Simulated assay, not measured.
Amino acid sequence: MNKALHPVAAIRRQQGVSLLVVLILLLVMSLLGIAVLRSSALQERMSANMVDRNEAVQAAETGLVVAQATVIKGTFNAMWNGSTTYTALRTAGGLTCANGYCDRSDPTNADTWQTAPDKPATWTTMANGARYGFTVEYLGNAKGESSEVRGVCNTSSAPRYLCERPMFRVTSYGRGRGVAQVVLQSNIISQPQ
């Protein structure tokens, strides 16, 4: 004999299934929502770190430009005609190795080989809140002629300023508004202003 289920009995057997399906869908949607929130929070942190790093790089680059423009082409520009030395200019300006102006011109002379500080003595804050500082090391005179005068340095009557160029190493430190720090270093063979 065929036993057909009564419609009321069939409905009673399915009442718990719909609740279970809804709970599973709610759980899946909650997990997806949490994953999206975590992803967006991570992307926000990554973009903030990138901005901070870019600010630190720009600050360090600014330090290099300032050191070249104001220190090397400014304070130490008088070295070109040979009338003064790096040590004399540094002493007259009260610039010591402790505050970032070191002499490394003669590696065989222990008096001129000074250890540069591992961070700048003074920091300059930029408009965006990033900071920079730099150290300048005098490396001695580089031999060579400029593109304007060729063959002159091979003669004994060549002017010293055309054939000897003061050489410096500038180490620039940049810090962003957060925790990013950047160190850039550049060797500069200066030219008269």
Rank of each mutant, 00 (worst) to 15 (best):
P107R: 14
A88T: 12
V136T: 12
F76I: 00
N109Q: 13
A142S: 07
K143I: 15
M126P: 08
L89W: 01
G144Y: 05
T85D: 09
V71Q: 07
T70N: 12
G63D: 04
G93F: 00
G129I: 09
T115G: 03
T84Y: 04
T70V: 09
N109C: 08
S105W: 13
G94C: 03
Q58C: 10
N77P: 02
G144A: 05
G129H: 08
V71G: 01
V71R: 00
Q68W: 09
E61G: 02
T125Y: 10
A69Y: 07
P120D: 00
G63F: 01
T96N: 02
N128D: 15
E137S: 14
A67I: 03
G140C: 04
T70A: 13
Q114V: 11
A78I: 08
G63L: 02
M126F: 12
G140N: 13
A59N: 13
L64S: 05
T115R: 07
T96L: 06
D118V: 09
L89N: 01
A142P: 06
N99C: 03
D118H: 07
V57W: 12
M126Y: 08
G133T: 11
Q114F: 04
A59G: 12
A56V: 09
Y132S: 10
A78L: 15
C102M: 07
V57M: 09
F76L: 02
T115P: 03
C102G: 05
S83F: 05
P107A: 09
V66M: 12
T84N: 13
T85C: 03
R90W: 00
T135V: 15
A69V: 13
N109V: 10
C102W: 05
K143S: 15
G74M: 02
A121D: 07
P117I: 10
K73F: 00
Q68I: 10
D106S: 15
P120S: 01
M79W: 00
K119L: 08
Y101W: 04
T122C: 02
A127Y: 09
K73Y: 01
G144M: 04
E137V: 08
C97I: 11
K73L: 00
W80Y: 11
V136K: 06
V136Q: 06
A142H: 11
N81R: 06
A142Y: 11
T115F: 04
A92P: 04
S146P: 10
P120R: 01
D118R: 12
G94A: 03
A67D: 02
V71S: 06
T85F: 06
G82K: 08
G63K: 02
N99K: 04
F76G: 03
A142E: 12
Q114Y: 05
A59Y: 13
S146R: 15
C97R: 14
N109I: 10
D118L: 12
Y132Q: 06
A78Y: 09
T70K: 14
T70D: 08
K73P: 03
T122E: 11
T135H: 07
P117F: 10
A60F: 10
R104E: 07
T91Q: 03
G129D: 14
G100Y: 11
V66H: 08
T87C: 01
E61I: 04
T96S: 13
N77L: 04
W80M: 02
K119N: 10
T125V: 10
T122I: 07
A78S: 14
G133E: 11
E61N: 07
G133V: 05
